[in-house]
């Protein structure tokens, strides 16, 4: 939704991910960008250049935090040290909402640094919703959970991915970061209709949308974030915004990163696919 309690009633337009190769360009040229998304973990450090650059960015731009290792779906409670460092960063950035993934990724303190898919079980719903609530309570900011792209499904699953997502966000009372590229990738890898997924998403909870590029292999698709957004994903984005409305949208480009201008131009293409032809702030 354009503005709701899940994105702190903000009205962000089109943003791009803040990435190291673009630091110099942004600081020197000060391009007009509606907002930047940062990977929280890259700035959960105690000093040095990352925080220095972040502070300079914060002087001029709106920043939203996106995490990659809270692992809401872990069958263990969130790490307190991680939470404290994350909260300290939210105070620095004043991020209106904070997002991380609907996945798991560490066991007994050993980290895979991957976004591993959940078994869609009722036990997992309970664990995940409890963890999200705990994080949301601790951070005192709205949390949005992002659907991940996946390459495996579990025999144990008792529902579809979109049913799992709905159950989790209802029980956790949190927002959704809807990644339409991830829906497309998973749909192709698992053989479901991505439109059916989008049509089941509770639109009132969507705080933000992600778009990105992926790579087609012969027998599967990988979520590589190293290409422009492909047409089927733009079409799915158009379908999603047709249901949800104009929503804060962010382009992820994490590998083989081209120039800042090229990334920004690609992000702004989102305007062509919005309902009623109304452009988002950029």
């Amino acid at each position: 939704m354009p503005a709701s309690r899940f994105n702190a009633f903000t009205d962000h337009g089109i943003g791009i991910g803040l990435r190291v190769p673009h630091y110099q360009h942004i600081l020197e040229k000060k391009p007009v960008v509606d907002w930047f998304e940062i990977i929280s973990e890259n700035y959960m450090v105690e000093g040095g250049r990352p925080l220095h650059v972040l502070d300079r960015i914060l002087e001029q731009y709106r920043v939203v935090q996106h995490g990659v290792s809270m692992y809401f779906g872990n069958a263990e409670r969130p790490n307190r040290d991680h939470l404290q460092k994350l909260k300290a960063l939210t105070r620095r950035t004043e991020t209106p909402w904070i997002s991380d993934h609907l996945c798991w990724g560490s066991v007994d303190g050993r980290f895979t640094h991957d976004l591993l898919p959940m078994p869609y079980t009722w036990e997992a719903v309970e664990w995940t919703a409890r963890n999200i609530r705990e994080v949301q309570d601790h951070l005192e900011r709205p949390v949005a959970v992002e659907n991940v792209s996946s390459y495996a499904e579990f025999h144990a699953s008792e529902m579809t991915e979109w049913e799992f997502l709905c159950e989790v966000v209802e029980r956790a009372d949190c927002g959704i970061l809807l990644d339409v590229n991830n829906i497309y990738v998973s749909a192709k890898n698992h053989g479901f209709d991505p439109v059916v997924y989008v049509d089941h998403v509770p639109v009132e909870r969507v705080a933000q949308i992600h778009i990105a590029g992926h790579t087609n292999y012969e027998r599967y698709i990988l979520d590589t974030h190293d290409h422009p957004v492909l047409d089927p994903v733009w079409n799915l984005y158009a379908h999603a915004t047709g249901r949800i409305g104009r929503t804060a949208t962010l382009l992820e480009w994490d590998d083989r990163i081209p120039s800042f201008d090229e990334v920004h131009r690609e992000a702004l293409k989102a305007n062509r696919f919005l309902p009623n032809g109304k452009a988002l702030a950029a």
Partner: peptide, 27 residues
Amino acid sequence: MAKPLPLNSEQPNLAELQRLIANSVMR
């Protein structure tokens, strides 16, 4: 919305599943 199904008794619980998968992923 999905209805709870009887758990397959051969399937491990969430913690066991994650431990098995993590060990395999990190092998």
